[in-house]
Design a protein around this nucleic acid. Structure first.
Length: 188
DNA sequence: CCCTGATTCGC
DNA sequence: GCGAATCAGG
């Protein structure tokens, strides 16, 4: 692929919209995010601010072997949206499934009584947002927490972004990896 | 580990 | 000009 005019168009547009290089690369196809970033620089629109003072950036960094310059400053005005679902979630309507059936190969399916209330709460919360993936859809970074009975149609995997390293999403990691002390005296 | 953009440098 | 490799940071 090459940088045809319209591809550059898309690049400019998306970059202007604040899309990430990888997103743009994916959109364009046939190029990697590196290619995109490289192009962005060559086009001289690396700094997403536009206004500023272009003259200032004229400091030719040509002669700088084996050094780590750190020129560009990013006036990032956008902040991350870290919204925690702390709302008083009420679910008057009965929760349909209660899992536990022929389950035995089922993983540490929450038993409600030995799970921290917060964790349990978030798990329920998560099940509403769950992507409900099938086995095939799971990837290295999707939560592999199973919900439902594998022998039923009503079975799926959480599928939310998994914690790096862990096989589950944040909420499920919470119930999956309990401190031993919590499950220690589980009577049976 | 995943993701970001930035820079370098052989092609 | 191009972009993989690499760097630096989150």
């Amino acid at each position: 692929m090459s940088w045809t005019d319209d591809r550059v168009e898309v690049l400019k547009k998306m970059w202007g919209e604040g899309k990430s290089a990888s997103q743009i690369a994916k959109e364009l196809g046939g190029v990697t995010r590196n290619a995109v970033i490289g192009k962005v620089h060559r086009l001289g629109l690396s700094n997403r601010s536009g206004g500023a003072s272009p003259a200032k950036a004229a400091a030719t960094p040509k002669a700088k072997p084996a050094a780590k310059p750190k020129p560009a400053e990013k006036p990032k005005a956008a902040a991350e949206a870290e919204a925690k679902p702390a709302a008083p979630v009420n679910r008057p309507l009965g929760r349909p499934k209660l899992v536990v059936t022929a389950g035995q190969p089922l993983p540490p399916q929450p038993s409600a009584n030995e799970i921290s209330p917060e964790a349990l709460a978030s798990v329920r919360e998560v099940e509403k947002k769950a992507k409900r993936l099938s086995v095939m859809e799971l990837t290295e970074r999707t939560c592999k927490w199973p919900v439902g009975d594998p022998a039923t149609e009503d079975f799926w995997f959480c599928g939310l972004p998994a914690q790096q390293g862990k096989p589950y999403c944040e909420a499920h990691v919470g119930v999956a990896f309990q401190p031993m002390s919590a499950r220690r005296d589980r009577r049976r």
